[in-house]
Amino acid sequence: MAEAPSTPEPIQRLIEAFHRLPGIGPKSAQRLAYHILRTSEQEALALTEAVMDVKRRIRLCSVCLNITEADPCAYCSDDRRDKAVVCVVEQPLDVLAIERSGGYKGQYHVLHGILNPIDGVGPEDIHVRELVVRLQAGEIQEVIMATNPSLEGEATAMYIQRLLSPAGVRVTRLARGLPSGADLEYTDDVTLARALEGRREV
């Protein structure tokens, strides 16, 4: 990043730290850093503490790898949830999205990533092995693949399906199709074809 040479080093360092965050470009990083400079010491301290608390107190659930304070997490230790079904998602935010829908009462497994062959993200780079080990206990009968309907999400779902097929569990996939509010005229062929495959009686 080309900064004016007169920028004091601490500010420069903060700008660079912000710039490393996802979705933050050089301009935004600069704005944020100068905003911090203007805030009170208290506010700055609260921010640092919040950041450190997340790092110190939040960890991955040893069962499902979701982020949690207590291990196992609230979902894994809830006896009212179905232990025979596990829903595989890319990231912790996806768990929240599925919980918000209110329609699912089973277990989760968070991959923390997605297979991306062209960028070199392979099976060893995401939490797939832990899923295989979970299945060996024999309690799980159905795995629902809830990866995104992108090329990478599809590749991940197919890979896991292949990996699990010798174990004899049922592997299902979230129905893919039109997002609500979509315009048929502008919908791509893949989405349309998938939506047709997943059609239902009205």
Binding site: P117, I118, G120, R129, V132, L163
Partner: peptide, 14 residues
Amino acid sequence: NSGRYVEALAVPLR
């Protein structure tokens, strides 16, 4: 990158 991946698919995960 993806050549490595083609190989990974052929090997069962440890």
